[in-house]
Design a protein around this nucleic acid. Sequence first.
RNA 1: GGCGGGGUAGCUCAGUUGGUAAGAGCGUAGGAUUCAUAACCCUAAGGUCACGGGUUCAACUCCCGUCCCCGCUACCA
Length: 717
Amino acid sequence: MNIGEDKKAPLGVWGRYLITAALPYANGPVHIGHMAGVYVPADIYVRYLRAQKRDVVFVGGSDEHGVPITIRAMKEGVSPQQIVDKYHAIIKESFEQMGISFDIYSRTSNQVHHETAAAFFKKLYDEGLFEEKETEQYYDENAKIFLADRYITGTCPVCSNPNAYGDQCERCGSSLSPELLINPRSTLSDAIPVKKKTKHWYFPLQNYESWLKEWILEGHKEWKNNVYGQCKSWLDNGLQSRAMTRDSNWGIKVPLPDAEGKVLYVWFDAPIGYISATKELTPQWADYWCKEDTKLVHFIGKDNIVFHCIIFPAMLKAHGNFVLPDNVPANEFLNIEGDKVSTSRNWAVWVNEYVKDFPGCEDVLRYVLCSNAPETKDNDFTWKDFQEKNNSELVAIFGNFVNRTFVLMHKLCNGKVPPLHTDVMDETDRILIEEIKNAKTKVENCIEEYKFREALFEVIDLARKGNKYLQEKEPWKKVPLNPPSGGAFESDAMVNHKLIDNCIHLCLQLTANLAILINPFLPFTSKKLLHMLKVVDKILDWKNAGKIKLLSVGYSLRPPELLFRKIEDHELSYQVEKLRSGSIKSEPNNEKSEKMGTNDKSTNQPANKSTIQYDDFAKLDLRTGTIVSAEKVEKADKLLKLLIDLGFETRTIVSGIALHFKPEEIVGKQVVVVANLAPRKMRGIESNGMILMAEDKEGKLHFINPDDKINEGSPVT
RNA sequence: GGCGGGGUAGCUCAGUUGGUAAGAGCGUAGGAUUCAUAACCCUAAGGUCACGGGUUCAACUCCCGUCCCCGCUACCA
């Protein structure tokens, strides 16, 4: 592959472009975080490339496999297919409505993908690139399923992080396999997983480590800081074999004879979805995937970095014959009104709802999300900001310029494009013409470097310059004059007439430029402009930008229509109210944040506990006790080391309540203790028992204790 | 605690390889104007560039340390 030789390729040297946007996971709709981080930037890039007449394909689709979907189906009593059908339709529609112009929006449950992914796997298998291991895999006997990586937690063998996930330790960055974990447990039913024999195929990432290091750390220093830093961290920590198959019946069947009940790991099959979608789109798919002069770019959220920068490239490398990503411009997260987006708390602005609440304002959302995109760090979306950006930039600068140009043209030039009289052009005119040219260069440079918000700023700035120009020229102050008939002579009036012509002429040409430049960002607006200017789509070719001969002299144009409307205060308060009233307080241990990235495939539902017999209860030795001392445990945010007087003895209990109570304020409190709990070491301190706590709906903890003070050590029955 | 990303005007962000760049937009305050969706245009205020050291003739820009924010993760048997 083209290691090291592809830096800063000059414009136009790429034969074709293959652009992918992260496959959204089909167990929920998309929200504005997804849009801002992935789909809007990807779409801008693609529309720009198309305007450049580059050969480009933009693929996407729903990611429909994975255990969370089967779990959800189980809970709702429907089939996994029904779940994904429902959300695939919603997601697809949202993208269409927002103008995300996929060449194909596919899905991983369809036939082509099953075949492609299976064949990919088979090829690696046939070449002996997998390690086949029969292992004791963890099985949840309550839920009756093998536990997917994500559903097992345990201790990381590398850094001793006790809550590493089965697929990855996020503390030390190591990629793991479930059986490497020490002390595993099920997050589904809380059951202690039992081991059961099963066979799986592992992909030895470590074999690609040195290659990845060279390819990324040496060859792609231009990647964004956040992306490069993450990659470096993983690579420095060392890679390990990772199982690429799972025990499940939802997914792509492992294409081997002895693999009943086994499917491909969702992260193995999902990125292959990009290939399948391309296949489905065109018989020439291989040109895009296999020819070295293809520029492959993955648009993703930051939660996907490891898969798109490490695992998938290693898979492609192993398979051979495929191009590798030239860049992976991952974005950070978008918060809403100061809080992180959370599906479980319903703290989100859903695209399908936005489209209903603000019909015809799709471009406004695109504008706000792009101009405030989390390109370098997490950012905040507020409705106030949404209003201000709309009212003071789209309406007041961009829309207003276009509107005053059109109104003046109709008032002063009979609704036609006036001629340009070079004899009366001045410095101001020439500067404006220069600015139009510059704008094109600036915008394209920014887009090529994935700096979309800056690019968009430059477009708006051009409109700003138009307003300034208009202000300086003040054509409305000049006396309009009918075209001279017969022997015209130079007079002040004649000159004024020419000045008006020049001003409006240039403003109109500028407007045409705006249509071209804004097109990648606000395609609906661009369309409206073309309609008003009575020109065809052809004019949107990027090569036309920067020119001032886009509209023919004498051509009559349509009356103006407003491009944007103001957003009123009451619309904001409605949205904010909707957001707040719809939000659900969730329990803190369930407060797994939603990422604006699209593949948060974990769900974390505490299951209802099953019925127990009296005997089970009677096994507990519950006692009252009094806290005699409390201190914070070093290097642990949540732990307090407590000494509890139980009457017959005083013992040490380590409890995870430090975020809720200060040590000094709980000394002397009576508590209920599980006295016969097996000892357990935490942070090196042996804990002998457990304090009972109640948790309210805010997630706050409260001690459980007797109404009146009673003797230490009194049994609780 | 670990890893990663950040901390620059009220807000959202730019600041290239260290040297007249401490900047932009919005917001705010004045002014001017009326072609325009009470919009546009002009002007102004304001920041010890998180903090403390260090390297240098010179640091927002390099080094060390500290603090804070965000994400993932850890300790809540």
